[in-house]
């Protein structure tokens, strides 16, 4: 699937530029991608190291386990396949908590760790499990409570009430997450 989409983006993009005789754009896009990805990885690397360090302390001290107990009752219904007290549950809950506060940078390392420990439960290592996909849906529907970047951007461009979008965003996120989880259940049943 990823293979097809990846290829289609490139083929469509290049052909469209060829038709419009804009070949210079493609040249720049290809050259830019190396620079952009390098910049991104250089930016991600130290942030990742920092949060993985903090996360390790939270893990070793037993803080993660404690936190996850609080929302694990909820997670039990969302992830019925994960055995009780498995460490992936604590990573998933940390990822959700970080996401709620708009700390995308902090959420990603937790998410990656969650995937790693979900992989330990996986019997076919190259195939996504149901829990992995459910976790993905939780992440893509964006469980945000404080969209910090958007608020600061709205301030920058002189909004009368920059935080007016917070409550609607919470309501929309809540509804769409609920719908997303329902769709996930339905797809899981039909897709064997």
């Amino acid at each position: 699937m990823v293979n097809k989409i990846w290829g289609c983006f490139i083929i469509i993009g290049i052909l469209y530029c060829l038709l419009n005789k804009n070949i210079e754009i493609v040249n720049n896009a290809i050259l830019d991608s190396t620079k952009t990805s390098f910049d991104m990885i250089i930016k991600i690397f130290p942030v990742m190291a920092l949060w993985l360090g903090i996360a390790k302390i939270a893990e070793v001290s037993g803080l993660l386990k404690k936190l996850s107990c609080k929302i694990s009752t909820l997670l039990k219904y969302i992830f019925p396949e994960i055995p009780k007290n498995h460490e992936s549950l604590s990573y998933i809950s940390s990822n959700i908590i970080a996401n709620m506060f708009g700390l995308g940078n902090a959420a990603t390392p937790f998410g990656l760790k969650a995937m790693q420990s979900l992989q330990e439960l996986n019997k076919k290592k190259d195939t996504a499990t149901r829990s992995m996909i459910t976790f993905l849906v939780l992440n893509t529907s964006g469980v945000t409570i404080m969209p910090t970047t958007i608020i600061s951007l709205r301030m920058m461009y002189g909004s009368v009430d920059p935080t007016s979008i917070v409550l609607p965003c919470i309501i929309i996120t809540f509804l769409s997450t609920l719908l997303g989880l329902m769709i996930d259940r339905i797809l899981a049943r039909f897709y064997v």
């Binding site: 990846w6 290829g7 983006f9 490139i10 469509i12 993009g13 290049i14 469209y16 530029c17 419009n20 804009n22 754009i25 493609v26 720049n28 896009a29 290809i30 830019d32 991608s33 952009t36 990805s37 991104m40």
Partner: peptide, 11 residues
């Protein structure tokens, strides 16, 4: 990033 760049910049 390579494929997204090509797709988006093609307009």
């Amino acid at each position: 990033i390579l494929s997204i760049n090509i797709f988006v910049k093609s307009n």
